[in-house]
Amino acid sequence: MKNEQKVVAGIKIPDSAMAKAATELVRDTETDLLFHHSSRVFLFGALTGERKQLKYDAELLYIGAMFHDMGIMDQYASDHDRFEVDGANAARDFLSAYDVSERGVDDVWDSIALHTTPGIPQHKRPTVALVTAGVEMDVLGIAYDEFTDAQRHEVCSCHPRGLKFKHGIVSSFCLGTIRKPETTFGNVKADVLSYMDPTYKRENFVDMILNSKWES
């Protein structure tokens, strides 16, 4: 008898060969905290798409959500790029083994690379907008009251936050940036290092302008 597709809070979890391979890879690579966080990002993103009546590709949304923090892990971390870009590159490499359009790959790449850049993703195509919507809900509680109690309960019952998720996710973000603090310039992860690393010195955009080699 064929197994029925898993449904959480009314959202079907993609179960194609590509989705299953992504789940296995992320499960084997990330910490439990990040795996469950990424799973919730997909579910909250998909629920946002349903509420806003957006036409989105559930598989691409799933890949974007599952890979969005892969750049934090040592296996995928580069020496100099932002961890968001590292995760986006990991997803692009993964998708190269599957029949995904160039536009689809670009949307997944953007969804990961832009998920910590407020003010832009919501103006992009649904895959990009909904990954960020899922991240913002799970990490920041943005639009919290636009989800029902039942939806939040079912999502978190299937993929638990745990008692110390807030501190755990901040620590995870720190691990993804502390060895390359220059990558936090101009994005929200500067706040993470300011909180976690007493040696961190935030770069100042105005200082960079005034101290450049231009005479005036």
Rank of each mutant, 00 (worst) to 15 (best):
H159R: 11
T117N: 12
G104Y: 07
G71L: 01
G141L: 05
G141I: 08
S111V: 11
T148E: 08
D138K: 03
V135K: 02
K124A: 12
F83P: 13
I112T: 09
C158R: 11
G162Q: 04
S101C: 12
D110N: 13
V100C: 09
G104F: 12
D79L: 09
G134A: 01
V155P: 10
P126I: 06
S78A: 07
E146I: 00
Y76S: 11
G71Q: 06
D138C: 02
F83S: 12
R103G: 15
D79F: 08
A90F: 07
C156H: 08
S101Y: 11
V108S: 14
A113P: 14
H159W: 13
A129W: 03
S78F: 02
G141K: 01
S96C: 06
Q151G: 02
G141E: 09
D99V: 02
A88L: 05
S111Y: 04
T116D: 13
F173S: 03
K166T: 13
T132N: 10
L163G: 07
D93I: 03
R103E: 15
V170F: 05
E102F: 06
A113F: 12
E154L: 05
Y76G: 08
R152V: 03
G134T: 00
F94K: 01
T148N: 03
H159D: 08
D99F: 01
W109E: 12
V108C: 13
